[in-house]
């Protein structure tokens, strides 16, 4: 029983980090109709900035702040200087459909090599903002640590912040409107292009947080966030790619499920487990768990 609860708690931590990555992917997908594979690169770049700041100042939270800002700026920059150019040029011929996806892949490679050239390939660590020793209850020590609790709290704050932004502000309304029906939003006076760039910025910032949190108890390298991208994508697919709530739920389910596999079966099956989930969801419920009835498809 104790092991079950431990696994649940660790899974919740893992899942909450996946949630950020999958939210970042969903945000971009909703506004741009592109799965942004460069998200892993953007988050990695932001995390390297966070690493620089936090290792020089010794304050993790300052690093996190810079990672958010850096990630957001980079996200906005990618949309403004890259995606707009791309959509202007690559819009005819057989490759038009595949061009955006391939372009984000190229961008991932570009960011990876720039980071590699700047910081080198060796593993970096970011000092965790809280103890990584497990809590001791009575006489037993569980693997759930203060850091895990802090990760869950940080992610919750960000999720609440995003929910407020999307539900309670004019900007949130504009973001939702231009994702839901860009033409009508434009008619209603929303500057959809700017709104889209802001969406990319938000996604970039959220990705930066995901990178920092993953790295707080792991290594950072130019390749270290690839797996986070994959799991974030799987979580987003579970949620149906469209729904932000679905992305979060999907990420938590995936995180907990994979942690159960890790603790009860072994490391070797974690990725296979994740991939199987992806294929099963795509075959059985391709619109995701949050899919509404046919009549109200958004």
């Amino acid at each position: 029983m104790q092991k079950v609860i431990e696994t649940l708690l660790i899974g919740l931590t893992t899942g909450s980090i996946y949630a950020l990555m999958s939210l970042a992917l969903v945000l971009v997908w909703r506004s741009t109709r592109v799965i942004n594979f460069a998200q892993a690169g953007q988050a990695m770049f932001a995390t390297y900035i966070g690493f620089e700041i936090s290792s020089r100042s010794g304050i993790f939270w300052l690093g996190l702040l810079f990672a958010i800002v850096g990630g957001a700026l980079l996200g906005a920059g990618v949309d403004y200087f890259f995606m707009r150019v791309l959509f202007k040029h690559a819009n005819t011929g057989p490759a038009a459909v595949v061009a955006p996806v391939i372009a984000t892949l190229g961008l991932l490679g570009l960011i990876r090599s720039v980071v590699g050239l700047t910081w080198g390939g060796e593993f970096k660590t970011i000092e965790a903002p809280a103890s990584t020793d497990g809590y001791t209850i009575g006489s037993t020590t569980i693997p759930f640590s203060a850091l895990n609790a802090l990760i869950i709290i940080t992610v919750s704050i960000i999720l609440i912040g995003l929910a407020l932004l999307f539900q309670r502000t004019n900007l949130g309304l504009a973001l939702r409107a231009s994702a839901y029906a860009p033409e009508i939003a434009k008619l209603a006076g929303i500057r959809t292009a700017q709104t889209r760039t802001i969406g990319w910025a938000i996604a970039g910032g959220v990705g930066g947080v995901a990178g920092m949190l993953v790295t707080s108890n792991n290594f950072l390298s130019p390749y270290s966030l690839d797996l986070l991208l994959v799991f974030g994508f799987i979580a987003a697919v579970i949620g149906g790619l469209e729904s932000m709530v679905g992305a979060v739920i999907g990420a938590l389910v995936l995180g907990i499920g994979l942690t159960f596999i890790l603790n009860y079966v072994g490391t070797s099956l974690v990725f296979i487990g994740g991939f199987t989930v992806l294929i099963l969801v795509l075959l059985i419920k391709p619109d995701g768990i949050m899919a509404k009835g046919k009549g109200r498809r958004a």
């Binding site: 791309l86 011929g93 061009a99 090599s113």
Partner: peptide, 17 residues
């Protein structure tokens, strides 16, 4: 990697086909 990705990006933007 840098050369590969720059080539990929340039070609996908300017000569996608």
């Amino acid at each position: 990697g840098l050369i590969t990705s720059v080539l990929l990006i340039l070609s996908v933007i300017y000569t996608p086909n």
